[in-house]
Computed example of a mutant assay.
Amino acid sequence: MAGNVHVVPEADGKWAVRIEGTDGTGPTYETQQEAIASGTEAAQQAKVELIIHGRDGQIRERNSFGNDPRDIKG
């Protein structure tokens, strides 16, 4: 897998899973929850970050499933 996984809104009202560094095509889903589930699985397998966008395109949430650069103690 090339890069981070994004869940983004489509113009037709559906939700898509897009992977950074690819041609931009990927699966689309009727609901955001379906797209998040698919994107989560892909991000976990690739050990990359899942970035969830809202309907307005702004980043709503980020989840890291791998090489987290922060050193958090505790």
Rank of each mutant, 00 (worst) to 15 (best):
P69G: 07
G74V: 10
S64L: 04
P69T: 08
D68Q: 09
E10G: 09
D12Y: 13
T28Y: 05
E41I: 02
G24H: 04
G74L: 07
I51Q: 01
T25K: 15
G39Q: 02
T28K: 08
A2G: 06
I59A: 09
E20M: 08
H53W: 09
G39T: 02
Q32G: 00
V8F: 05
A37E: 00
R60A: 14
Q33Y: 00
P9M: 11
I19P: 01
Q45S: 10
I72M: 13
H6S: 10
K14D: 14
D71T: 15
E61P: 02
E20F: 08
D56K: 05
T22Y: 11
A16N: 06
A16Q: 15
D12N: 14
W15S: 05
I72R: 15
G3C: 01
G66C: 03
G54L: 08
A42N: 06
A11F: 09
G13F: 01
V8E: 14
E20N: 06
E49G: 02
S64H: 08
L50P: 01
A11P: 13
D71K: 15
V17L: 06
R60W: 11
I19A: 04
E20C: 02
D71C: 12
D56Q: 11
E49C: 00
Q44R: 06
N4T: 04
H53D: 13
G3R: 07
D23F: 11
Y29L: 01
R60V: 14
A2R: 13
H6A: 03
Q44M: 05
D23R: 10
P9K: 13
E30G: 05
V17W: 06
V7R: 06
A2L: 10
D56L: 04
T31S: 07
R18Y: 07
I19C: 05
K73H: 14
I52Y: 02
R55T: 12
I36P: 03
S38C: 01
Q58C: 13
H53R: 14
D68M: 10
N4Y: 03
G39F: 01
F65E: 02
Y29H: 08
T25L: 14
R62A: 01
V8N: 13
D68V: 07
G39N: 02
M1G: 08
V17C: 08
I52W: 00
E61F: 06
N4E: 01
G13E: 10
L50A: 01
G24Y: 11
S64M: 04
I19S: 02
E30N: 05
G24N: 12
I72H: 12
R70N: 15
T31W: 01
I19N: 03
G13V: 08
V5R: 07
P27D: 12
A46F: 07
A43M: 04
T31R: 02
A43I: 02
N67A: 12
A2S: 13
I19G: 03
A43K: 03
N4I: 04
R60Q: 15
R60Y: 09
A37P: 00
T25V: 13
A11W: 09
I36G: 00
R55V: 12
I59R: 12
G3P: 03
N63L: 09
G21S: 04
Q45G: 08
Q32H: 04
N67D: 12
T31C: 03
R62G: 02
M1C: 06
R18D: 06
K14C: 05
G13H: 09
P9I: 10
A11V: 14
K14R: 15
E34Q: 01
K47R: 11
N63T: 08
G66T: 00
V8W: 04
D12G: 14
I72N: 10
